[in-house]
Write a protein that binds this DNA or RNA. Sequence first.
DNA 1: CTCTGTGAAACACTTCACAGCG
DNA 2: CGCTGTGAAGTGTTTCACAGAG
Lengths: 213, 213
Amino acid sequence: VRNTPPATVARLPRYLQYLDHQADHATVSSEDIARASGVNAPQVRRDLSFLGTLGTRGVGYDVSRLRPLIMRALGLTGELKVAIVGAGNLGQALAGYRGFASRGFQVTALYDSDPAKHGLVVHDIPIRPAARLAADAAGGEFAIAIIATPAEVAGKVAAELAAAGVKSMLNFAPARLTVPAGVQVRNVDLSTELQILSFYLGGTSEPKPAEGT
Amino acid sequence: VRNTPPATVARLPRYLQYLDHQADHATVSSEDIARASGVNAPQVRRDLSFLGTLGTRGVGYDVSRLRPLIMRALGLTGELKVAIVGAGNLGQALAGYRGFASRGFQVTALYDSDPAKHGLVVHDIPIRPAARLAADAAGGEFAIAIIATPAEVAGKVAAELAAAGVKSMLNFAPARLTVPAGVQVRNVDLSTELQILSFYLGGTSEPKPAEGT
DNA sequence: CTCTGTGAAACACTTCACAGCG
DNA sequence: CGCTGTGAAGTGTTTCACAGAG
């Protein structure tokens, strides 16, 4: 299950999201999943086949069986601890995002360099000094870091986190982070997204559907 | 230039971002762009070749020539007007994002259904009643909408915008929006991103680099 | 001699079509 | 009979290797 193609991995969360809205005892067809996820049915079947033989021919997939299987495939076993670096507008907005807990992510702390913010609690999450970042990371306080700092310091933060052993980062700063091999960085760049939209806005061609990835 | 592959379009903003940090009179090689953008040099050359013959063999690419060419290819001519729907934590954080103006995007308004917020000004951007959304959209007040509402109403908002003629949306709500053909929606879903990171966290394989897209 | 631009090969991903299980 | 699972075909994307311009 480790040789799952990246394109498939990127779609699994969408299938999971659909399954979350289905009753546990229900049975769903590849067509059902496909319609809800914006892909086509053969694609769904192919994707799921990478995880093994999960469905029943002539019937479909058991939600109660499929859901845990996808979760395990994604490594969503137990709570994953997440830290948010940067307690500005964006960092605080992310701290208030309700989708975390419901999907097994636990936000342990916000980090900020501004002493005036230290000790404050935002959406039940404490703001800590940025100086503690490396120590907390090395101590295993979190596995994933969300970078919501200004672009100027994002690279520095990423390097610090990587040195402290953090393997996964989600970067919101408009900057390319260069990290050692083995560290996963996913960039969410607003400007990039808007510029891509801009391209298809002017066009008369049939663009490919796209993803936040 | 209209048959530019989606994969190439998704990379052009990265090249542009690098060029923005270079002096206007400078010359850059495909290798320079590649290193800064996290791709390899032949890829950069292939991508740029879709826009025409832009470089000088043996020398490289003129920043002053390449930059406007990429911008034109992306449709970044003049100011693009953007509206943000939902003036909650996230909507207000997005309204304060400094990367907009510097890249030719102008945020015209925030829309919210809460009357208590109407008339307020956040980061110089006025908050308007959600009821005005369709009329403003149809009146051409903005070309792109950013959806930062709760998931429950995101679908409704998207349908309303699509009916009013909005062709491009960036969706931050954790929901699949189903829109008519011809409307571009890009989803930025935090849970999805974290779940993908989670997969690679557990893995021992060499994952493909990824993108906010 | 350097660095672009591009055929051609390799690879990855998607779609099709259907055999086969329940 | 319906829907899964999957070979095989088709399409899109990346990489290679090098001809050729400056």
